[in-house]
Amino acid sequence: MRYLVLSDIHGNWPALEALLQKAPAFDRVLFLGDAVGYYPDGDRVLDWLMAVGAECVLGNHDAWLLALERLPVEGVVLEILAWQKARLLPRHLEFMASWSWQKEVEGALLVHGSPCDPMEYLDDLAPAREAFRCTEARLAFHGHTHLAGAFLELQGPKPWVRYQAFPEGGELVLPPTVRALANPGSVGQPRDGVPGAAFALWEGDRLEFYRVNYDLTAVQRRLLEEGFPEWLYARLTLGE
C-alpha cells in the first residue's frame, strides 16, 4: 500500500490541485490536519478529502473553526476561519467533526502536533525526545510546523535523536533499529524557505519527500477576489 501523506493545506486549493497533477501514483491518502485557515478554498479542500476517503486527524485550525462559537473572534486567523465557516456546508462541518486528534494506520501514528499534545510544535530535539516517549509507534506522522523533515531515534540503552530536513525533497529509508517522527511539510504554506507544495509518499520502510512548484499568482487572484491580506501571498513567494 502506497500512501500520499499531506498536512497543513490551509484552504490553498491551487497548491493541492498542482500537487495532485504531479504526484506519483498512490493508493490512499493520510491527512494530518489543518484543512482550513489562511487561504479561501477550505470547502474545495474538504470536498476532495471526502471524495478520496482520506484518513484525517484534527489540526488546530480545524478545531478552532469548529469551536468558533466559544471563542472571541479576534485577529486575522480567527477572522479568516469565521469567514470560511460561514461558507461551509453542513456536510463539511460534520466531516471535520468526525476527525479525532490521533489515528493509527498500519501501525503508524497520525497526529497534527506531537504524540504528547496535538497542539505542540515538534521544532527542536527536546520536544522530539519527549514525543518519542509518548508513543510506542515506530513511525509517527505529524504536521503543524510546516517544515518537511524527520526526527530519528536510534534505539538502545540511551536513545539518540537527530533531525534531518527535506525542504527540497529526498528519500528516507528506516533501518530496523530506528524510529521516526516524520513531517511531510505543508501543502498550503511551507515555512522552510522553499516555496511550493510539500508532501510525502510512504510505503513500508520508505518515505519519499517532494516539493511541487505551482502558479502562486492563482492564489494571489483568489486572495484579491475575497479581500484577504496580501501578506498571505508574500509568504508563499518566500516559503515562510
Rank of each mutant, 00 (worst) to 15 (best):
M1D: 06
V5W: 00
D8C: 00
H10F: 12
G11R: 00
N12R: 08
N12P: 12
P14M: 04
P14F: 02
A15I: 01
L16A: 00
K22T: 14
P24H: 10
A25T: 13
F26L: 07
R28F: 01
V29R: 02
F31D: 03
D34M: 11
D34Y: 12
A35F: 09
A35G: 10
A35Q: 13
G37Q: 07
Y38G: 02
D41I: 09
G42K: 02
D43E: 14
D43T: 11
L46S: 05
M50K: 15
V52W: 04
V57E: 01
H61Q: 07
H61Y: 12
H61E: 06
H61W: 13
A63I: 08
A63V: 07
L65C: 02
L65D: 00
L68R: 08
E69T: 10
R70A: 14
V73M: 01
G75S: 08
V76Y: 07
E79A: 11
E79P: 03
L81W: 04
W83H: 05
L89R: 14
L89K: 15
L89M: 12
H92V: 08
E94S: 14
E94M: 09
F95P: 01
M96L: 15
A97H: 01
A97C: 04
W99Y: 11
W99L: 11
W99E: 06
W99N: 05
S100Q: 14
W101M: 03
K103V: 10
V105I: 13
G107H: 11
A108G: 06
L109K: 05
L110D: 03
L110P: 00
H112Y: 11
S114W: 12
C116P: 00
D117M: 13
Y121K: 09
L122P: 01
D123S: 15
D123V: 09
D124T: 09
L125T: 11
A126L: 15
A126F: 13
P127N: 07
R129V: 00
A131L: 09
R133Y: 10
T135D: 02
R138N: 01
R138A: 10
A140I: 03
T145K: 09
H146G: 01
L147K: 10
G149C: 01
F151Q: 05
F151W: 14
L154T: 14
P157T: 02
P157R: 05
P159T: 00
V161I: 05
R162H: 13
Y163P: 03
Q164H: 14
A165K: 09
E168Q: 12
G169A: 05
L172F: 08
L172E: 01
V173Q: 05
P176T: 06
R179S: 12
A180P: 11
N183Q: 05
N183S: 05
G185R: 04
S186R: 08
V187H: 08
P190T: 05
R191C: 02
R191T: 03
G193V: 06
G193L: 06
A200Y: 02
L201Y: 00
L201C: 06
W202V: 06
D205P: 09
D205L: 10
Y210C: 04
Y210G: 02
Y210H: 06
N213V: 13
N213G: 14
L216P: 13
V219P: 08
Q220G: 09
R221T: 10
L223W: 12
L223A: 08
E226R: 14
E226I: 08
G227C: 04
F228M: 07
F228W: 07
F228G: 00
P229I: 14
L232Q: 04
R235K: 15
R235C: 13
T237L: 15
G239A: 07
G239I: 03
